[in-house]
Amino acid sequence: MTDLSTLKVPGPTVIPLTEPFWEAAAEGRLVIQRCGACGEAVFYPREICPHCWADALSWEEASGTGWLKTFSTIWKPGHPGWIPAVPYTVGLVELAEGPTMLSHILGETPEVGMKLTLAPTNIGGRVLPCFRPEHGVE
Rank of each mutant, 00 (worst) to 15 (best):
M1T: 02
T2K: 12
T2F: 03
T2P: 10
D3N: 09
T6L: 13
K8W: 04
K8I: 07
K8N: 14
P10L: 10
P12F: 13
P12M: 10
I15Q: 07
I15E: 11
I15T: 13
T18N: 12
T18C: 14
T18Y: 01
T18R: 07
E19K: 10
W22L: 13
W22E: 09
A24L: 14
A26K: 11
A26V: 04
E27K: 15
G28R: 05
R29L: 11
R29F: 12
R29P: 06
L30H: 07
V31W: 13
Q33I: 03
C35L: 09
C35Q: 07
C35A: 10
C35D: 08
A37Y: 01
G39A: 02
V42K: 15
F43V: 11
P45D: 07
C49Q: 12
C52L: 07
A54K: 06
D55Y: 05
A56Q: 11
A56M: 02
E60T: 10
E60H: 15
E61Q: 11
E61T: 10
A62W: 00
G64V: 00
T65C: 02
T65S: 14
G66Q: 04
G66W: 01
W67A: 06
L68Y: 03
L68K: 02
K69M: 11
K69D: 07
T70E: 11
F71P: 03
F71M: 04
S72V: 06
W75M: 02
K76H: 05
K76F: 02
P77G: 06
G78M: 03
H79P: 05
P80V: 08
G81L: 00
P84E: 03
A85L: 03
V86D: 12
P87I: 00
V90S: 12
G91L: 14
G91H: 10
L92G: 07
V93G: 06
E94S: 11
E94A: 12
E94W: 04
E94H: 01
E97A: 03
P99S: 14
P99M: 09
S103K: 04
L106K: 03
L106A: 05
L106C: 01
L106P: 01
G107F: 04
T109W: 06
G113R: 00
K115G: 15
T117S: 14
L118R: 05
L118K: 12
A119P: 08
A119N: 11
A119D: 05
P120T: 01
P120Y: 00
T121S: 15
T121D: 12
N122W: 07
I123L: 14
G124I: 09
G125T: 09
V127T: 12
L128C: 06
L128V: 13
C130N: 04
C130Q: 01
F131E: 02
F131T: 00
R132Q: 06
H135Q: 13
H135N: 04
